[in-house]
Design a protein around this nucleic acid. Structure first.
Lengths: 212, 212
DNA sequence: GTCTATACTCTGATAGAC
DNA sequence: GTCTATCAGAGTATAGAC
C-alpha cells in the first residue's frame, strides 16, 4: 500500500496559486544554496528562511520540516543526475557514447555545482536519507550499463578494463570540479576558468584509455 | 610577530603527563570519527566526548573549544596528506614516479578514509578553516611539481597533457574511493573490497595516459 | 584533573492573532 | 497566507566543588 504523496509535492497539485508556486520555488532555491554549502545538519531554517525572504513560520507553512525540504531537493535531483547515464546508447558508437557521457557529466558540474555538492555532502556523510535510492535504482542502472560496456569490450570495440570502475572514474573526474571547486580555483590561481581545459584533458584521457 | 603556539599543541610541551597524552589522543581520535562523518557544524561536543569516554567539561579542559579540536586535526592532517606529492622525485623515472604517487594516494584512501573525508568535508564547504594553507603551501607545492611534469613532457618522457589537471585527476580518482565509499560499496554490492581492482584499474589508466 | 551543575544561545517547530 | 510570540530541546562553554 502506497501512501499518498505529501501535499507539498503532489504531482498534479489540484490548484496551486501563483504565490504558492513562487514561494515553494524560492524555498527550494534557498535550501539548495544552504544545504549544499553546509550539509544537512549544518544548515539552519533561519538561514534558509532569510535566503528565501520568508519568515521561519511561513517557511514551515510550505514544508512541514527541515528534512522535507532536503528530501524534496534530493529526490528531485537524483533523477536529473542519472539522466546522462540512462542515455548511454548500447547501439551507438562505444567511444563516442562514453565521451558524450563524460562531456554531459562535466557540463552538469559546471552548470549545477550546488546540486553536485548537495549530493556529495549526502554521500560523504553516509547517505542516511537516500541510501534506498543508491542501493536500488542506482545499483540497477550501473549493473545494466556495466553489462553494455562488457559487451563492447568482449567484441573488441573498446579496451578491456573493469566496467564499474570505469564508471566510477567518470564520476570522480567530473564531479571533482564541482565538489572541490574551492581547491581547484585556489591551485589554479586567479579567476582562471578550469572548464575548457578540463574538457580537453578528460577527452584525451578517456580516448587513450578506451582505444582498443 | 608570531603568537606562541597554544598550550594544547606546544611542540615540546614541557611536561605532559601520561594521562594528558592519552586523553588528548583519545579526543583527537574521537574528533576524527565524528567530524569526518558529520562535518564541522554537524558534529557535537556530546558525541565527541562520549566517543572519547570523557565528560564534556573534561574534554574542554584539554581543548579550549570545538574549533580547536578541528583545527588541530586539520593542520596535523594536511602535512601527512601532501607527503606523497612532496616525494615525487624529479630525478626518478617519470612514469614510475607518477604511478608510485598514485599508489601511495590510493593507499591513503584505503588506510585513512576518515582523514580523507575530514578533508573532503572541509573543502566541500569552502575550506573556511584552511583556506590559507590551500592558497599558500598547497598552491606552491603544486606549482613546483607541475613544473617538473612540464619538463618531463618537454623532453618527451611522458605524454603532453595539462600538468595541473593531471594532478587533479590523481586526487579525484584516488580520493573518490574513500570519500564516496558508501556509494562505491552500494554499487559494487555485497562486501566486495574495491581496492585490489581499483589499484589495477588506475595503474592501467595512467600507464595509457602517460605513455609518450 | 575531573566532575556536577548551570548559564546562555541557537534551533526546529507550534500556537494563535490577523 | 503571513505574522508575532513562544516553547522545548540541544548546543557550546563556564563556575566551582572535590
Amino acid at each position: 500500500m502506497k501512501a499518498a504523496p505529501p501535499l507539498w509535492n503532489r504531482p498534479s497539485g489540484p490548484k496551486r496559486t501563483r504565490i504558492q508556486t513562487r514561494n515553494r520555488q524560492a524555498i527550494l532555491e534557498a535550501g539548495l544554496d544552504v544545504f549544499s554549502a553546509q550539509g544537512f545538519r549544518g544548515a539552519t531554517l533561519d538561514e534558509i528562511a532569510a535566503a528565501a525572504r520568508l519568515s521561519k513560520p511561513n517557511l514551515l507553512y510550505y514544508f512541514p520540516s527541515k528534512e522535507a525540504i532536503h528530501t524534496a531537493l534530493l529526490t528531485q535531483l537524483l533523477d536529473t543526475w542519472l539522466d546522462p547515464l540512462r542515455e548511454l546508447d548500447p547501439e551507438g558508437d562505444p567511444v563516442e557514447e562514453l565521451l558524450t557521457y563524460v562531456r554531459r557529466k562535466l557540463e552538469l558540474s559546471r552548470d549545477y555545482p550546488r546540486e553536485s555538492r548537495l549530493f556529495a555532502n549526502e554521500i560523504l556523510q553516509g547517505a542516511p536519507r537516500i541510501s534506498d535510492a543508491i542501493e536500488g535504482d542506482l545499483h540497477r542502472l550501473v549493473a545494466e550499463k556495466a553489462h553494455v560496456l562488457q559487451r563492447w569490450m568482449d567484441t573488441g570495440r573498446i579496451a578491456r578494463v573493469h566496467p564499474v570502475h570505469l564508471i566510477f572514474s567518470i564520476w570522480a573526474l567530473t564531479q571533482h570540479y564541482a565538489d572541490f571547486d574551492m581547491q581547484v580555483s585556489a591551485v589554479l590561481g586567479d579567476g582562471e576558468d578550469p572548464y575548457p581545459e578540463a574538457g580537453v584533458y578528460l577527452d584525451t584521457l578517456f580516448r587513450k584509455l578506451l582505444a582498443p
